[in-house]
Every structure is written in C-alpha cells, then in structure tokens.
C-alpha cells in the first residue's frame, strides 16, 4: 500500500532520491514518474466524467432550480420560489408520499423475502440452481417489460381478478391499477417481483460465506436451526444487508420506467413519482426551473443514504479488522 502511494507523491519521492546516492537512485525514480504520469493520463476520462458529470452537471442543475427557466436555461434568479411552488404542487406532494409508501414497503418486503428465500435455498435442497435461476430472472429483464406484464395480469376484466371470480369467488378483487387508492400497491407487487431475487442472491452469497465452524459450534451448543439463523447468522450478515439496502433504496428514488410502463402515473396522478415529475417538467411541461428544484430534492435522500455509506466504506481510514 505505502509503496504504491509513494509512486504518486512526487515531492516525497524527490526528497527520498536526494538523500541517497544520486546516480543509483535516479533511474528508477524517473521510471516511477513516467508510470504515475501514464496513470494520470489513463484516468483522465474517469476524472472528466467524475467532475464534469457528477460535480458540474449536478451543480448546474441545482443552480437552475433557483431560476425561472422554462424550456431553456435562463439565469433570471428568483431565489427559493421554485421550491415554494414545488411544495405547493399537489402532484409533487403525491409523488413524495408515493415514494415513501412504496419505498419503505419495497425495501422491507424485498429484504425479508430475499432473506427467507436465501435461507430456504440454503437447506441443501435439490435443484437449488434451478430455483435460483427462477427467482432471479425477472431482475435481468427491463422494468418496462415488468410493468407491461403486470399491467396485463392486473387487467380488471381479463386478468387474474376475472379468472378467480370465474372460479366462483365472486367478491375477489385484484385490479389495483384502476383504483387510485391502491394503485401504488399494484406497482409495488411488480417491483418486488422484479427485485427480490437480487436480494436473495446477495443474501445467499452471504450465507455461503459464513464459517462452517459457526454452524458446527451452534449444533454442539444445541441451538436450533431457526434460532441460529436469527440470532447468530443474521447479525453476521450486516454488510450484505447494508449493501442490499443501499441498492434497493437507490432503486426506489430512481423508479421511472416501471411507472411509465405500468400506470403512466395514473389513474389520475395516483402513482406519480418524483423521478417522473422531473422528467415531465423538463420535457413535455417545459418548466425546467421547477423540474430542477424537484431533482435537487431527489438528491437529498440519495445523499442521505449513500453519503455515510461511501464515507464509512471507502473514504474514512480503515477500521482495524
């Protein structure tokens, strides 16, 4: 680690060279510089994207949220007016509420079902890889596909509701997409169907990574299987759970395709989401200022989830292991 760090730090390198015999040390010194220069060149695209896309563009978006821009950027400052308007727009309020209901349920259900599926698959079952393939394939498909399939299955007169009613259960209701009150749960079902396999795979990998001796020890101690999973294994899986949580939470904030395909935001504005709000305002509604204010608001939950995680995992000095 230290060695590679030294290649980058030129001043440190030079002082090192200065201290020792000149001619003997100069050659590798120059070579090191060349490598670090090449590394700099090679990482240019990444630096440009990192700075250009994720600093300048984000900053530009935030800047625009303080202006009255309609379909083109105009720097006519109006302070926080857009935010005030935003939080007085019913469509936005519904979007935010939807995101929270959908988000919390989505994350919780995916985590629980993903863990349960992983545990059940971990019981030395036959056809394990077959089950795994089945649980995960929806994740390989586009959210547009997911949305369209579930839209069709939730069709009131030809879908699942109709089939069950025909079987004799006349009062059966399963057509959430036409009822503004529960339409968001229809979206939730589709989203869970698509993403819970992902959690299952991560959790299963986590379970497989646990020291077999732990299992043996708990068996000698006479601790039942479910108790071992709940009180010993689950706490050991914290990193996997955090990872899954981050991936799912980010998916919640981003959700756009699924809404567009499955409900189009309807009925009415019942299933609007912030991501769709932003896109609609910068495209068809020609209100960039308001859209950017909404986008800035979207950034906050992402920062809240990702920020501490990135800091803890990558930026802060390593905890002792």
């Amino acid at each position: 680690m230290e060695e590679k760090g030294a290649q980058i730090n030129d001043s440190e390198l030079n002082s090192e060279v200065g201290k020792t015999v000149e001619s003997a040390e100069k050659k590798p010194g120059r070579k090191r510089k060349r490598i670090s220069f090449s590394a700099l060149i090679a990482s240019m695209p990444m630096m440009l994207v990192a700075v250009g896309l994720f600093v300048i563009c984000v900053g530009y978006s935030i800047l625009l949220s303080f202006t009255k821009s309609r379909s083109f950027p105009r720097f006519n400052w109006i302070g926080l007016d857009q935010y005030e308007r935003l939080w007085n727009t019913e469509r936005w309020l519904v979007s935010v509420e939807n995101m929270f209901i959908y988000g919390v349920l989505f994350v919780v259900i995916c985590l629980v079902s993903g863990f349960v599926m992983a545990v059940f698959l971990d019981q030395k079952v036959r056809f394990e890889s077959g089950f795994r393939t089945l649980f995960l394939y929806p994740y390989a498909m586009s959210l547009v596909v997911t949305g369209l399939v579930w839209q069709w299955m939730m069709e009131p007169s030809l879908g699942i509701q109709n089939v069950i009613q025909k079987l004799g259960w006349a009062g059966f209701e399963f057509a959430p997409l036409v009822d503004p009150e529960i339409a968001i749960y229809g979206v939730l079902v589709a989203a869970v169907w698509q993403a819970s396999g992902l959690v299952m795979v991560l959790m299963l990998a986590g379970l497989r990574g646990i020291d077999m001796d732990i299992w043996k020890a708990s068996r000698v101690d006479g601790i039942s299987t479910w108790r071992t999973y709940l009180f010993i294994i689950l706490p050991m899986m914290r990193p996997v759970i955090v990872t899954s949580l981050v991936l799912l939470a980010v998916g919640v904030v981003r959700v756009y395709d699924l809404i567009v395909a499955q409900t189009g935001g309807g009925p009415g504005i019942a299933t609007e989401m912030p991501a769709k709000f932003v896109i609609d305002h910068i495209t068809v509604r020609n209100n960039v200022g308001l859209g950017m204010a909404a986008a800035t608001m979207m950034l906050l939950p992402v920062l809240a989830v990702i920020g501490p995680w990135i800091y803890r995992e990558y930026v802060s000095p390593r905890k002792r292991s």
């Binding site: 001796d213 732990i214 020890a217 708990s218 000698v220 101690d221 006479g222 009180f231 010993i232």
Partner: peptide, 26 residues
C-alpha cells in the same frame, strides 16, 4: 461433548459472556 474449533467459531456479535452462556440458555 464439548468442541473447540480451529477458527474459534465464536458468535461475533455476542459478548464473551453471552458466547459462553448462549447454549445453556437455549
């Protein structure tokens, strides 16, 4: 029987005391 493992196999999130007593409590 009681068994001691190469990798120790201690329950990481429990204190030493709880590690010792968990089996008895169960």
């Amino acid at each position: 029987i009681g068994m001691v493992f190469q990798s120790y196999a201690l329950y990481p999130q429990m204190s030493v005391e709880k590690n010792l007593s968990f089996g008895l409590r169960v």
